[in-house]
């Protein structure tokens, strides 16, 4: 019987995932955020394209003056003026946060694919891969960063070619730490995605004369990696947030800059609210982007979105 069902008892049991605010509002906010960031970076890199480096586009005094004109909204304008004052300094931190995340997730992926393939299809290499992922996933990321930065004094090994790419070579230590850590987590996601590809697929690949490695490369991985996208998105979002730990090895990313300014002006609440908003914007953008990617690469009949 396939009679439609929707009634009192079932009502509310299927919580649909809806966007809390209206969709146009989200798009508008996203456009403003990224537009501002791009202009900001361009301005500061090109040595003051619109306004002097590090100066706000709109003067905070002007915003405060507006607040004086409309007393009812004074609090709002004061907060905005505060944000306008400090956002330029934070935007450089946002840039480093994005660089750390993007580089590490990409390099981590390069390591994760062989790690997961070894884990699923390897013999003794599967134990190596297991040991690696268990060790990296069994210890705190911050401890790993300490090992690399303080324990191994990684900064002295940065090759001359890369030396000077960032003002502070600790960034390289952070990238190495995040890459190694993220590889372990990504490998887990990819591994379970590979396992969810039907075993008949590999057999069918071998049956038409592919080697095992070829069958994995051309048949299993293209399907498995699509299954892995939701998990991979999680990992990306984790990494955006956990890149903040680089602050503890002196990397001036978003959190570090926020903290530095806050310990100067003692306005912790306001500064960290601002930082939280920026992180939220990055996280939400990343999850939207990945949803779009997932839709884009979907194959009919494969995975949750492929139908």
């Amino acid at each position: 019987m396939s009679e439609p069902v929707a009634d009192a008892v079932r009502e509310g049991e299927t919580a649909t995932r809806t966007i809390p605010a209206g969709r146009p509002l989200v798009v508008l906010a996203g456009g403003l955020f990224w537009g501002w960031l791009l202009l900001r970076w361009l301005n500061d890199w090109l040595g003051g394209l619109f306004v002097p480096r590090g100066e706000p586009f709109v003067s905070p005094e002007a915003v405060e003056a507006l607040g004086a004109a409309v007393p009812a909204l004074r609090g709002l304008f004061d907060s905005t003026a505060f944000a306008v004052t400090y956002l330029p300094a934070l935007s450089a931190g946002v840039w480093l946060t994005i660089v750390l995340t993007a580089t590490s997730i990409a390099l981590g992926f390069v390591l994760a694919v062989p790690l997961s393939v070894a884990r699923v299809y390897g013999r003794w290499t599967s134990y190596l891969s297991l040991a690696y992922t268990e060790l990296l996933r069994g210890t705190p990321l911050l401890a790993q960063l300490f090992v690399i930065y303080y324990g191994l004094n990684f900064v002295q090994y940065v090759p001359p070619l890369l030396d000077g790419v960032f003002a502070n070579n600790a960034v390289w230590a952070a990238i190495v730490g995040f890459t190694l850590n993220s590889a372990a987590y990504q490998a887990e996601y990819i591994r379970s995605a590979l396992l969810s590809v039907e075993s008949g697929q590999l057999t069918a690949g071998r049956a038409i004369g592919l080697t095992k490695l070829q069958a994995i490369r051309y048949v299993v991985l293209p399907q498995g990696l699509r299954f892995a996208i939701p998990g991979w998105t999680n990992e990306l979002i984790y990494l955006i947030k956990y890149s903040s730990l680089a602050a503890f090895i002196t990397v001036p990313e978003l959190f570090q800059r926020t903290n530095a300014i806050a310990s100067d002006n003692f306005r912790y609440t306001a500064m960290f609210s601002l930082a939280a908003l920026l992180y939220l914007a990055l996280v939400i953008s990343a999850s939207r982007l990945m949803n779009a990617v997932e839709d884009r690469v979907a194959i009919p009949g494969l995975g949750a979105r492929g139908r």
Binding site: E13, P20, K241, Y242, S244, F255, T258, A275, L280
Partner: peptide, 30 residues
């Protein structure tokens, strides 16, 4: 989130998005 009314669900979901979207170090400092 599963059985609640529209308002309570919206509240819980919003707080959840903020807490899940903010780095733990920022939450701790806060």
């Amino acid at each position: 989130e599963v059985y609640g009314g529209r308002a309570s669900r919206g509240l819980v979901e919003t707080v959840g998005v903020v807490l899940r979207g903010t780095p733990i170090v920022v939450i701790l400092i806060f």
